[in-house]
Nucleic acid binder design. Structure first.
Lengths: 218, 218, 218, 218
DNA sequence: GCCTAAACGAGACGGTACGTCAAGTCTTCTG
DNA sequence: CAGAAGACTTGACGTACCGTCTCGTTTAGGC
């Protein structure tokens, strides 16, 4: 529980910070694709081996830098109502944060390297989902969300939208979007099924024609 | 305007097909990250220059192969009701298609290379959105969707969910998900605002406490 | 001139032996080229600094190990006749000794590093020459070798042969070779000049055609 | 049997020469130990890969450069007498040639790398021995050398002396040494056994005391 | 019985060169 | 003249040791 320093030269915190910093600066200036381990080491004024000793790829360096810099607690606000919580959380989440380059770079890496994908999910993505899940769980406990609503699906829709716009950069992100989304979600989970009954949210869905001939992909 | 064959040896369609094919095979066997221009050329039994003459990166090759192979028309079903159309489209869209490797590889490339990102959006992604937009527009014309609903947001939520699960691979994709989504969206667009009025979907949002202290990111 | 032990922890003889030993073992197992200071330290169970504190290169370590292990006195036998002395000395010298790897490794180092070359000559090579020189000097004093014979040349021929075969490993080394060499040398130093007179050993040499056009190298 | 040029870009002779040249220059200026593949490539204005494509180590480069530059035919002079041939050959061989750095560097490499040692022996060293062997064989055919003299031993003594002095650099090399050596060898092969009989050159050697206690090494 | 001082183990540090890989360009020959 | 073959320059990759440096620990005198 203590420092637990054994023998040997202790790790240099200065070097560590220099590396994380150099990585972030290079990334901001030239983008993730142009980032290299050599470049990071050079800019940090550090031996290449010192980078490789602690991280095995540029993605690892950037992930650690991101986590350390974005290390504000992800709190789940508790306003007592689903509407209040959702609005607070989503407007905060969708606020522009200038981390697009970092995030999309890491996602690209995750898509290319399954090993890193796991680390990215576990150390970053999933920890963000927890707060939203907590909000929805509380609302469900209060009866604000029907029990048959798939809350994981809701979470994925929120983060799906966020990431989709982050990646494509074709439409705005920001507080207004968060607020819009709040409204949409509230109606989706609270309203009675539109037409006849509750059938359409059941796994069987509408029995109407399912045209297998149309095959839109992605 | 068609053939337009000038002087010189015509382009070899055989080589073109061999290249696209070799790319897809290598991609299936070893993944997008391991794909190389050298490898494609070698496997296609073609000089490297022949690949570079027509495509400028492995992403371009794969994108063309994808478009050519997935070149079924993305039809917008027209069942006459929003529910029918949505269900048909979404179940078809979310059907598993085994193209995850191709799609995530291309997305990774798009995230790393803005130039390619543009091509990817224009030649692939946006053409898929058109069908869904058509469905929603028709429903709006019929009055099934209130005019103040941001239909682009709906589209992004659908494709956001799809891509998010494609990329993270942490939750299922498939027809049932498409059906669930149909239900959720129908309620979201058709229901009256949950509580008092329509206020919450307005850009102003709830006036209640907006806790600036909580700063969830992404 | 004494122990001269000041304050401070005394040098660990155990560590010294462990290092020399580890060096010899690694050298036997993997050869001189694969020997590294880190490897020696690791195998000896010793900090790298402890090796560097006392030796400045792997060659120094090995040289010291060699000297310490081959520290039998190099006696110049005194049988009273050149033939007896030479035979005794050369058969002993050419006896196979399994130190080829050590010796050739050190020689390689000496060829690459002039600094080490000096140490190698002074601390090892030249001390071996002394015994042979003593034998030849005694024989010269007894008149068994003409005064005009360059005894340094003889010594170099003996050790040259030894090292040449050590290094090239293309022809045998061993007692029989030593004995052959004895015979050859005896005849070379005792016989009257072959043809006309003693001229050919003089610095002027044969006056016959010296074809400067033929230029064999090494 | 000649050009045998298939398709593909032909090897650049300019690059080849630039590399060999750069290697020799660097070697002359900073010595073999300081020579590196990167340095050669840089100095030759050539990619590292171009060096590695054709040679697998700096030793290979230098060996080829040496062979190409020292590619004068090693002629065995034929003066009709052993004395004439030997004198011509040895004075030529021992003439100073300023290749000491190259030769000792290559020898060092050969001592460290058995693979290279083979190439060095076969492509360089042994081709030099052939001329001397021819001289000795002719003399033997003429009866100038007794049949029981081990001519390989004589060759090794000559080259042993040469290399020993090349490596240790403690005594002169040059024409006078070649001439001295001629005299010495002539007497060694032509003279009758010094003392009583021919016994001492037989493989059994003198039966007198063989002092196993004295163990000079190398 | 502390105090000073050096050697010890451990191991992180800034570097250099390694040998490999793929990129994208060029040069030649073949069909 | 398109296409194959393949040599070219370039530059990042990840590895191995280098020799130096800081640690905390150990082992001796010296006061």
């Amino acid at each position: 529980m203590t420092d637990q320093r054994g023998p040997g030269r202790p790790r240099s915190e200065a070097a560590r910070q220099a590396i994380l910093n150099a990585a972030m600066l290079d990334l901001d200036e030239h983008g993730y694709a142009a980032l290299t381990m050599q470049g990071i080491a050079a800019r940090a004024g550090v031996g290449k081996q010192t980078v490789y000793r602690w991280w095995s790829s540029k993605a690892d360096v950037v992930l650690e830098a991101l986590i350390e810099r974005a290390e504000q607690v992800v709190v789940a606000p508790d306003a007592g109502t689903l509407e209040g919580d959702l609005d607070a959380f989503l407007t905060a989440t969708f606020r522009e944060h200038g981390l697009r380059r970092v995030l999309t770079g890491l996602m690209a890496q995750a898509l290319l390297d399954p090993e890193f994908a796991k680390a990215f999910r576990d150390r970053f993505l999933f920890s963000r989902r927890a707060a939203l899940r907590q909000i929805l769980d509380r609302a469900a406990a209060r009866g604000e969300i029907p029990a048959d609503v798939d809350r994981e699906l809701l979470i994925d829709m929120v983060y799906g939208l966020l990431w989709y716009r982050l990646m494509l950069d074709h439409a705005p992100l920001g507080e207004p979007v968060g607020r819009q989304l709040t409204g949409l979600l509230l109606r989706a989970v609270s309203a009675p099924p539109p037409g006849t009954g509750a059938a359409s949210t059941s796994p069987s869905g509408p029995t109407s024609s399912r045209p297998t001939s149309s095959r839109p992909t992605s």
